[in-house]
Nucleic acid binder design. Structure first.
Lengths: 233, 233
DNA sequence: AAGTGGTCTAGACCACATG
DNA sequence: ATGTGGTCTAGACCACTTT
């Protein structure tokens, strides 16, 4: 896809030059000739960068660099299970549990599935730079993901799904709330009793619209902060 | 904008017919003739609906209805201060404090502003269906918003900014975390001491890229749940 | 008035899913 | 093989900001 290549090239150019917030980029027509793309393709590439929070466009005025005001926050907009993101940070995981089981009522609701379907259940503890990040309970639908084992679970599951099963994430729903940790969660997160937790439930759909993974995450409230950039268009 | 009208028309058509998750819509070319728009315009309209989580598209297969799996969650993707959203719910607010003050160090960092600038500070308590929703501390930059009073603060500030000052939100940054409530917050939220809070810091930029409003929100962890839909494109 | 981004079109061609 | 969505183009025109 040409527009993605162009978007990437522009992004890298911004990063490499370390441009400041509000710096003005060359005009649309200039960029078109620079990257040898039609105006329409250019517009699409810029729309992508705008969606990612890297630039903003002002009609009649220009295209400007947009930076986030704070650092070290986990982006909420990526679907990959953030192995790809947070480049400078070391994310690791420890597998705590692995089994096959039937869905709970909540799971039946979220997947809109048969109560007799089988699910791979896995519980993991994740670390960021060796600090506890979160506890993750994931449920993979066996109907869609026919095989999983502990070894795969210890590496990148989404990488396996993509490469081996050719199963890609099309879109996802996230549900967020704060709550008091359960006793078990507090122990695993190495936090005192009654400490708060940041809960994210996440439902992943394939590109064809079938939900195949539900993930229940409790984040350490001190080690995990999140951010999100939006546009009004 | 034609593509926005088309997008709205399709959305309303889906809602009116109360179509189920996964229902297939007419093909791209059929929609083009139905709404009398070129294929390109149609594609853009559909991209918008996809971004809003209303449909999903599968190459080579079709366009399908996407519904969220759960209800009664506050969407994180709108910038309007949610007066517009949550149609069936009654959102009200009570003004607790109103004054002009200089920025704190955090504020100087987020606005990247002069320490001598003046800010309108206002503290509000918000309710959803008469239950406590959150405590909001907002700071409006006087340089951009030259006038505000208690009366305006009691109604829709963003409506005032738009209509009277012609100031629109271009984009925004949100920062999220869980934490233990302070004593004052707990009292205002009518929660016990040491209860958790869901914190959202929000920085609003004008369409020209100038940050003009910083808002620090603490949500009642039982009365406020959030959701977010993403696409992998 | 000039320059910039935003919208829309018709049409060609590509990539994928399904029967 | 057919139909579907996805990409790309050149070009016309519109809306806004700046000088």
């Amino acid at each position: 896809m040409k527009y993605q290549e162009v978007a990437l090239a522009i992004e890298q150019s911004i990063r490499k030059q370390n441009l400041a917030q509000g710096t003005r980029l060359p005009s649309l027509s200039q960029l078109s000739t620079t990257y040898d793309a039609s105006k329409t393709t250019m517009v699409k590439a810029l729309a992508i960068l705008e969606g990612r929070g890297i630039i903003f466009q002002v009609q009649g005025s220009g295209i400007f660099v947009r930076l986030k005001a704070r650092d070290n926050y986990i982006p909420l907009t990526t679907n990959t299970g953030f192995t790809t993101d947070l480049g400078t940070h070391l994310i690791t995981a420890k597998l705590l549990e692995f089994k096959v089981q039937k869905p709970s009522e909540d799971l039946i609701r979220d997947f809109n599935c048969d109560p007799d379907e089988d699910f791979f259940f896995l519980k993991r503890k994740r670390y960021i730079d060796k600090k506890v990040l979160c506890i993750e309970n994931s449920y993979f639908r066996q109907k869609v993901v026919p095989y999983l084992n502990e070894e795969i679970a210890n590496e990148s599951i989404f990488g396996y799904l993509d490469k081996v099963l050719n199963l890609k994430v099309g879109f996802s729903d996230k549900y967020l709330q704060a709550n008091v940790l359960t006793e078990a969660e507090a122990k695993l997160l190495e936090l005192p009793l009654n400490a708060p937790g940041f809960y994210i439930d996440e439902l992943f759909y394939s590109t064809t619209g079938i939900p195949f993974d539900f993930s229940q995450n409790v984040y350490h409230y001190k080690n995990a902060h999140f951010f999100l950039q939006s546009i009004n268009k």
